[in-house]
Design a protein around this nucleic acid. Structure first.
Length: 148
DNA sequence: ATCATTTGACCGCA
DNA sequence: TGCGGTCAAATGAT
Protein backbone atom coordinates (compact mmCIF):
# COMPACT_ATOMS: atom_id res chain seq x y z
CA UNK A 1 0.00 0.00 0.00
CA UNK A 2 1.50 3.15 -1.15
CA UNK A 3 -0.37 5.75 0.78
CA UNK A 4 -4.05 5.07 0.89
CA UNK A 5 -5.96 7.64 2.91
CA UNK A 6 -6.14 6.54 6.50
CA UNK A 7 -9.42 6.37 8.31
CA UNK A 8 -9.50 7.56 11.92
CA UNK A 9 -8.70 5.02 14.56
CA UNK A 10 -11.51 4.33 16.98
CA UNK A 11 -9.39 2.40 19.42
CA UNK A 12 -9.85 -0.92 17.67
CA UNK A 13 -7.62 -2.64 15.18
CA UNK A 14 -9.18 -3.15 11.80
CA UNK A 15 -8.15 -5.60 9.18
CA UNK A 16 -9.15 -4.71 5.65
CA UNK A 17 -10.86 -7.67 4.06
CA UNK A 18 -12.06 -6.14 0.85
CA UNK A 19 -12.53 -3.12 -1.32
CA UNK A 20 -15.19 -2.59 -3.95
CA UNK A 21 -16.40 0.18 -6.18
CA UNK A 22 -19.86 1.36 -5.33
CA UNK A 23 -22.36 2.44 -7.93
CA UNK A 24 -23.11 6.08 -7.40
CA UNK A 25 -19.75 6.76 -5.85
CA UNK A 26 -16.61 7.62 -7.70
CA UNK A 27 -14.50 6.12 -4.96
CA UNK A 28 -14.15 2.54 -3.84
CA UNK A 29 -15.50 1.49 -0.49
CA UNK A 30 -13.22 -0.22 1.98
CA UNK A 31 -14.38 -3.04 4.21
CA UNK A 32 -12.72 -3.55 7.54
CA UNK A 33 -13.17 -6.20 10.16
CA UNK A 34 -11.93 -6.56 13.69
CA UNK A 35 -8.41 -7.95 13.81
CA UNK A 36 -9.33 -9.83 16.97
CA UNK A 37 -12.38 -11.58 15.68
CA UNK A 38 -12.24 -13.33 19.04
CA UNK A 39 -12.17 -16.68 17.32
CA UNK A 40 -15.48 -16.03 15.56
CA UNK A 41 -17.09 -13.96 18.27
CA UNK A 42 -16.50 -10.34 17.45
CA UNK A 43 -18.77 -9.24 14.66
CA UNK A 44 -17.38 -5.75 14.62
CA UNK A 45 -17.33 -4.54 11.05
CA UNK A 46 -16.51 -1.17 9.59
CA UNK A 47 -17.23 0.22 6.15
CA UNK A 48 -15.38 3.29 5.01
CA UNK A 49 -16.73 5.21 2.05
CA UNK A 50 -15.50 8.63 1.01
CA UNK A 51 -18.12 10.97 -0.31
CA UNK A 52 -17.93 11.77 -3.97
CA UNK A 53 -18.67 15.35 -3.04
CA UNK A 54 -15.94 15.60 -0.45
CA UNK A 55 -13.05 13.23 -1.03
CA UNK A 56 -11.84 14.23 2.39
CA UNK A 57 -15.06 13.30 4.13
CA UNK A 58 -15.23 9.70 5.19
CA UNK A 59 -18.50 8.00 5.93
CA UNK A 60 -17.72 5.27 8.41
CA UNK A 61 -20.45 2.74 9.07
CA UNK A 62 -20.01 0.54 12.10
CA UNK A 63 -21.75 -2.81 12.37
CA UNK A 64 -21.68 -5.49 15.02
CA UNK A 65 -20.68 -5.62 18.63
CA UNK A 66 -17.22 -5.01 19.97
CA UNK A 67 -15.34 -7.23 22.35
CA UNK A 68 -11.80 -6.63 21.38
CA UNK A 69 -10.88 -3.17 22.52
CA UNK A 70 -7.16 -3.03 21.85
CA UNK A 71 -6.49 -0.25 24.29
CA UNK A 72 -8.50 1.80 26.71
CA UNK A 73 -9.32 4.50 24.25
CA UNK A 74 -12.76 5.93 24.99
CA UNK A 75 -12.41 7.91 21.84
CA UNK A 76 -15.77 6.79 20.57
CA UNK A 77 -18.53 5.36 22.66
CA UNK A 78 -21.27 4.39 20.25
CA UNK A 79 -24.15 2.22 21.37
CA UNK A 80 -22.12 -0.49 19.67
CA UNK A 81 -24.28 -1.34 16.75
CA UNK A 82 -27.67 0.25 16.84
CA UNK A 83 -29.22 -2.85 15.41
CA UNK A 84 -28.45 -4.49 18.69
CA UNK A 85 -31.51 -2.77 20.05
CA UNK A 86 -33.87 -4.90 18.00
CA UNK A 87 -31.89 -8.07 17.73
CA UNK A 88 -31.17 -8.04 21.45
CA UNK A 89 -27.72 -8.93 20.22
CA UNK A 90 -26.54 -12.40 21.09
CA UNK A 91 -22.88 -12.85 20.25
CA UNK A 92 -23.07 -16.56 20.90
CA UNK A 93 -26.37 -16.99 19.15
CA UNK A 94 -25.26 -14.81 16.31
CA UNK A 95 -22.31 -17.08 15.72
CA UNK A 96 -24.50 -20.13 15.61
CA UNK A 97 -26.88 -18.35 13.32
CA UNK A 98 -24.07 -17.47 11.05
CA UNK A 99 -25.77 -14.17 10.43
CA UNK A 100 -25.06 -10.78 11.88
CA UNK A 101 -27.60 -9.70 14.50
CA UNK A 102 -28.13 -6.51 12.57
CA UNK A 103 -28.16 -7.66 9.02
CA UNK A 104 -31.78 -7.61 7.96
CA UNK A 105 -32.17 -3.90 8.49
CA UNK A 106 -32.35 -1.92 5.32
CA UNK A 107 -35.55 -0.04 5.90
CA UNK A 108 -35.22 3.69 5.16
CA UNK A 109 -36.97 4.42 8.43
CA UNK A 110 -34.69 2.26 10.51
CA UNK A 111 -31.08 3.14 10.92
CA UNK A 112 -29.30 -0.02 11.92
CA UNK A 113 -25.81 1.25 11.31
CA UNK A 114 -23.92 4.15 12.78
CA UNK A 115 -22.74 6.38 10.01
CA UNK A 116 -20.14 8.85 11.10
CA UNK A 117 -19.01 11.44 8.62
CA UNK A 118 -15.81 13.22 9.42
CA UNK A 119 -13.66 15.60 7.55
CA UNK A 120 -10.15 14.35 7.16
CA UNK A 121 -7.07 16.32 6.27
CA UNK A 122 -4.20 15.20 4.11
CA UNK A 123 -2.13 13.97 7.03
CA UNK A 124 -4.36 11.83 9.19
CA UNK A 125 -3.42 9.65 12.07
CA UNK A 126 -0.02 11.15 12.73
CA UNK A 127 2.25 10.04 15.53
CA UNK A 128 0.15 12.18 17.84
CA UNK A 129 -2.89 9.98 17.50
CA UNK A 130 -1.04 6.72 17.72
CA UNK A 131 1.05 8.04 20.54
CA UNK A 132 -1.99 8.62 22.68
CA UNK A 133 -3.66 5.38 21.71
CA UNK A 134 -0.59 3.21 21.94
CA UNK A 135 0.48 5.01 25.07
CA UNK A 136 -2.48 3.53 26.93
CA UNK A 137 -1.53 0.00 26.03
CA UNK A 138 0.80 -1.81 28.39
CA UNK A 139 3.95 -1.66 26.38
CA UNK A 140 1.92 -1.85 23.23
CA UNK A 141 2.80 -5.51 23.04
CA UNK A 142 -0.91 -6.30 22.92
CA UNK A 143 -1.60 -6.25 19.24
CA UNK A 144 0.09 -3.13 18.04
CA UNK A 145 1.29 -4.26 14.66
CA UNK A 146 1.69 -1.41 12.27
CA UNK A 147 2.13 1.43 14.68
CA UNK A 148 4.18 4.35 13.52
C1' DA B 1 8.15 -15.91 10.51
C1' DT B 2 4.22 -13.47 11.15
C1' DC B 3 0.77 -10.31 10.21
C1' DA B 4 -1.50 -7.17 7.46
C1' DT B 5 -2.66 -5.67 3.12
C1' DT B 6 -3.97 -6.26 -1.85
C1' DT B 7 -6.69 -8.11 -6.00
C1' DG B 8 -9.92 -11.11 -8.06
C1' DA B 9 -13.62 -13.98 -8.19
C1' DC B 10 -17.74 -15.86 -6.24
C1' DC B 11 -21.94 -15.71 -4.01
C1' DG B 12 -26.40 -13.95 -2.22
C1' DC B 13 -29.92 -11.05 -2.37
C1' DA B 14 -32.88 -7.16 -4.11
C1' DT C 1 -29.47 -8.88 -13.88
C1' DG C 2 -26.94 -6.10 -11.03
C1' DC C 3 -24.82 -4.65 -6.96
C1' DG C 4 -23.03 -5.40 -2.65
C1' DG C 5 -20.58 -8.12 0.23
C1' DT C 6 -17.38 -11.68 1.64
C1' DC C 7 -13.89 -14.99 1.09
C1' DA C 8 -9.57 -16.75 -0.70
C1' DA C 9 -4.93 -16.49 -2.13
C1' DA C 10 -0.78 -14.04 -2.90
C1' DT C 11 2.48 -10.52 -1.82
C1' DG C 12 4.88 -7.25 0.93
C1' DA C 13 6.24 -5.34 5.05
C1' DT C 14 7.78 -5.49 9.74
Amino acid sequence: MGNTELPPDDGYTWRKYGQKDILGSRFPRSYYRCTHKNYYGCDAKKKVQRLDDDPFMYEVTYCGSHSCLTSTTPLLNFPTATATATATNSPTAATGSGLAPADHFMAPTEQAAVSTSMHLGVGWMPASFQGVVAGSGAGGGSSAGMQT
